[in-house]
Amino acid sequence: MPDNLDRIGQQAIEHLSLKHAAREEALPKSRRVIRCCANSIRATHRHERASATELIAQAHQLLREIESSLQNHQDIYYAGFVHDAQKEYAEAVCFAALTQYQALPDAGELGIGWAAYLNGLAEAAGELRRYLLDQLRRGNLNDCENYLQYMDDIYALLISVDFPDAITSGLRRTTDVTRGILEKTRGDLTTAMRQAQLQQSIHELYQTLQQTSSAKQSSEQ
């Protein structure tokens, strides 16, 4: 047996042990990021903005810890689970900003990759549909039109990003889903607005008939 084989084996074990420990530390944190972001989105739907902001802050801190843990293990950092956590983080942040008419932060400001950011932004458009429908039930048509415009703008951005899926992490498929959500939402809102206009016309006609009837009764007296 070569004299240095034991040393090579020991070095390999030490290296892989460090890599395994880093992965075991980062993976649970990525799952916690996803849970925090899911709960933040739920809080935003409930208009619990303070809670949503706090959960986003927790997710941000966890992502920084993951980044630090995997600084010397870039192969694990790009294995996929960090991307998923970043995507959920982008979705939660962008969704909260859109519902509050705030400017969207970019990927650099969030400290995440652009592929994760764009996929998260696309999924935020899906959450915005649900939020829009809630506003529609409350009769807030002006807000609904604004949110639909946001969805339209997001889709216009997504279709301009034309790169292979290996670069964008499957953004093309996500964009196709966003298009379907956008068109369905547009149809729902258009139907609701036409119904609202019809109800308003009926109400105005009813008032006119009442006024005409009252005037006729007064003239007969």
Score class of each variant (00 low, 15 high):
99 T>N: 05
99 T>D: 01
99 T>S: 10
101 Y>E: 15
101 Y>D: 15
102 Q>H: 14
103 A>V: 12
103 A>S: 14
103 A>E: 15
104 L>W: 08
104 L>R: 09
104 L>E: 09
106 D>C: 08
106 D>N: 15
107 A>K: 09
107 A>P: 06
107 A>R: 10
107 A>Y: 15
107 A>F: 15
108 G>M: 14
110 L>E: 03
112 I>R: 01
112 I>P: 00
113 G>T: 04
113 G>A: 03
113 G>R: 02
114 W>Q: 02
115 A>Y: 02
116 A>E: 05
116 A>K: 01
117 Y>A: 02
117 Y>F: 15
119 N>W: 07
120 G>S: 09
120 G>T: 03
123 E>I: 15
123 E>C: 14
124 A>Q: 04
125 A>V: 03
125 A>M: 14
127 E>Y: 06
128 L>C: 03
130 R>G: 07
131 Y>R: 03
131 Y>Q: 02
132 L>N: 05
132 L>V: 00
132 L>G: 05
133 L>C: 09
133 L>R: 11
133 L>Y: 14
136 L>S: 07
136 L>R: 08
138 R>T: 11
139 G>R: 01
140 N>A: 13
140 N>R: 12
140 N>K: 11
142 N>A: 12
143 D>V: 00
144 C>R: 02
144 C>W: 05
149 Q>L: 12
151 M>G: 07
151 M>Y: 02
152 D>H: 10
152 D>R: 06
152 D>Y: 13
153 D>T: 00
154 I>D: 01
155 Y>E: 04
155 Y>C: 03
156 A>I: 09
156 A>T: 08
157 L>S: 10
158 L>Y: 09
159 I>C: 10
160 S>A: 13
162 D>C: 12
162 D>P: 06
163 F>H: 14
163 F>W: 13
164 P>W: 12
165 D>H: 08
165 D>W: 11
166 A>D: 13
167 I>W: 15
168 T>E: 02
169 S>M: 11
169 S>C: 13
169 S>F: 14
169 S>R: 14
170 G>C: 14
170 G>K: 07
172 R>F: 12
172 R>D: 04
173 R>C: 05
174 T>N: 10
174 T>S: 08
174 T>F: 00
174 T>P: 04
174 T>G: 04
176 D>S: 00
177 V>W: 11
178 T>C: 12
178 T>E: 05
178 T>F: 02
178 T>Q: 00
179 R>I: 01
180 G>A: 07
181 I>V: 11
181 I>A: 04
181 I>F: 06
184 K>T: 15
185 T>Q: 03
185 T>L: 03
190 T>A: 13
